[in-house]
């Protein structure tokens, strides 16, 4: 990255709408007191969670979207040990999870006595989706401020599948391991009204369908006949946002029940090898890391030092990109377009 960065957080000069003052402090750091304060949002969410968790359900109180990473593993711990919820753990196997992530899912769910459900979409389909996000403008700039296009496509799939399962099994709560910075402050807890929120996804889904084909609707949509019968949509809750823990403390907590940090992943992921590719594409296209927003918020809250945040986004093993491009089945033209050169060896 050749751009300069904020003197306080790690946002770079390429970040949308950013300006800097004479001291090199960015407009986002200066304006952090504007709007709903984070502490107020957290307190409000805590009260809502307390009320929501008072009612228990059979056979499950909540479904946890469990990627096998440290954050969703800790979310699972919190759900079971702190809140005493009956949980169904759900994993979307996108074909690029590190082998150690599956070991972690087994160890953590076994240690907590939780049922595990793993869903694997068609790999050729998922590859086409990621290739489309890498080579075409599928999502808007607003969305890409806090997440890469590839990760957004994957997480949207996770969310759709989680809502489907929740509706099918009448599970009233979906828990995810997002931290503040990955989501807006008043999205710690919200009604996951699929039909209402679908309008905002229509345009990007149309672009994805144009690039990938109508199979997209099978994965990213819920049939109208199913939604017509919905009496109440599940709540989505991000429990990690209610905790004030540094990353190393979260790692220590999950390691105590068998979780181990995988190898083969970059500094910003603890489960998915594809993250490195998605980060590369994002930085190449937009000039900033998709983790700058999230990590900058942790820096401002004092939960991570600026040096730690910088070392995380700089831990991006580009030497793995060619193998990932092979795994995604990128054409020679797509590889050249992404600055990846010609194929080394096709998988």
């Amino acid at each position: 990255m050749s751009s300069s960065r904020c003197a306080c957080c790690i946002l770079s000069s390429s970040f949308p709408s950013i300006t800097f003052d004479d001291q090199g402090v960015c407009s986002y750091c200066r304006d952090q007191t504007a709007g709903l304060s984070i502490d107020t949002a957290i307190e409000r969410a805590r009260a809502q969670v307390k009320e929501l968790f008072e009612h228990r359900h059979q056979p499950y109180d909540a479904i946890v979207c469990n990627s096998g990473g440290k954050d969703s593993s800790y979310t699972l711990m919190l759900a079971v040990q702190k809140y005493g919820l009956r949980i169904l753990s759900f994993t979307l196997d996108n074909g690029f999870l590190a082998p150690a992530a599956f070991d972690n899912i087994r160890k953590v769910t076994d240690a907590l006595g939780v049922e595990q459900l793993t869903y694997r979409p068609s790999l050729p389909f998922f590859r086409r989706v990621i290739r489309a996000t890498a080579t075409k403008p599928i999502y808007r700039e607003k969305t890409l401020m806090r997440i890469s296009a590839g990760c957004n496509a994957c997480i949207s799939l996770v969310n759709t599948m989680a809502v489907r399962i929740a509706l099918e099994k009448e599970i009233p709560i979906i828990l995810a391991g997002f931290t503040l910075g990955q989501i807006p402050t008043n999205a710690i807890i919200f009604r996951n009204h699929f039909r209402f929120l679908a309008e905002s996804r229509e345009e990007s889904l149309a672009r994805l369908t144009e690039a990938v084909g109508h199979e997209v609707e099978n994965y990213y949509d819920i049939p109208g006949r199913v939604l017509d019968r919905v009496a109440s949509y599940p709540h989505s809750v991000n429990l990690l946002c209610l905790e004030t823990l540094r990353e190393e403390e979260i790692v220590a907590k999950v390691e105590a029940i068998g979780w181990r940090k995988p190898t083969g992943v970059d500094g910003c992921s603890s489960n998915c090898e594809l993250n490195t590719f998605n980060n590369y594409v994002h930085e190449r296209r937009l000039g900033f890391s998709p983790y700058e927003w999230e990590l900058s918020l942790l820096v401002r809250k004092g939960l991570m030092s600026r040096a730690e945040a910088l070392s995380k986004i700089e831990d991006n093993p580009v030497e793995r990109l060619s193998r990932l491009a092979d795994g995604l089945g990128l054409t020679g033209e797509e590889r050249v377009g992404l600055g990846l050169g010609v194929a080394s060896s096709r998988a």
Partner: peptide, 21 residues
Amino acid sequence: LIDQGIIDSFGLVEITGFIEQ
């Protein structure tokens, strides 16, 4: 606001939360 590209799905969540608060 969606058609104008001002908000995405999280934007809708933000707005409804803001109005309630």
